[in-house]
C-alpha cells in the first residue's frame, strides 16, 4: 500500500514539454494513408456505378450524360460519406482516391458538403439538366 503512486509522473511532467499539439495554430501533417475527402478522376471512369452500389451510405451518385462518350458527373455527398474507402476497393479502374490533405471539412452550413466532380463541359450540361448543387469543383 502506497500513497501518491503517480508522483513521478506528476513531478516529471513539470520538466517535460506538454504532450499537447498546437493544432489550430500549427497544422499537423496527417498520415499518408488518412482517408479524407474523396477525389474523383473523370478520365478513367466507365460508369459502372459499382462504387455507388457498394457505398454503405449512399454518398456517391454517378450521373450519366452520355454513356458511349464516357461522359459522367459524380455527385459526392460529403455529409453522408463514412470515409470507409469501399468505393476505392470496388472501383476497378482506380478513378477514386481519398485525400490525406483535406480533413478539415467542418462548416457552418450544409452547402459546401455537396460536391460535384467532372469535366467542365459535362458539369455545365449536368447543371442544366439536373440542377446540381451550387458548389462545383472542376478537376
Amino acid at each position: 500500500m502506497k500513497i501518491a503512486t503517480m508522483f513521478s509522473d506528476v513531478v516529471g511532467s513539470f520538466w517535460k514539454k506538454p504532450a499537447t499539439v498546437q493544432y489550430p495554430f500549427e497544422r499537423v501533417e496527417a498520415p499518408t494513408r488518412l482517408r479524407g475527402k474523396l477525389e474523383w478522376d473523370p478520365e478513367k471512369c466507365t460508369g459502372c456505378s459499382l462504387c455507388s452500389k457498394d457505398c454503405p451510405a449512399d454518398a456517391i451518385e454517378i450521373i450519366t450524360i452520355d454513356k458511349k462518350a464516357k461522359r459522367f458527373v459524380m455527385q459526392y455527398h460529403m455529409d453522408r460519406c463514412t470515409y470507409c474507402a469501399q468505393c476505392i476497393e470496388s472501383c476497378r479502374f482506380s478513378c477514386i482516391e481519398m485525400s490525406d490533405e483535406q480533413w478539415e471539412l467542418a462548416a457552418t452550413s450544409k452547402v459546401p458538403f455537396e460536391v460535384s466532380y467532372g469535366r467542365e463541359e459535362d458539369l455545365a450540361e449536368a447543371l442544366a439538366k439536373f440542377a446540381l448543387a451550387d458548389t462545383v469543383e472542376t478537376e
Binding site: A30, P31, R33, L34, Y83, A85, E89, M98, D100
Partner: peptide
C-alpha cells in the same frame, strides 16, 4: 492505427 489504416476509430481494415 491511424497511420496503418487511415482512420482512428472505424479502421475499415477488412474487405
Amino acid at each position: 492505427l491511424e497511420g496503418l489504416t487511415g482512420n482512428r476509430v472505424n479502421y475499415s481494415a477488412n474487405v
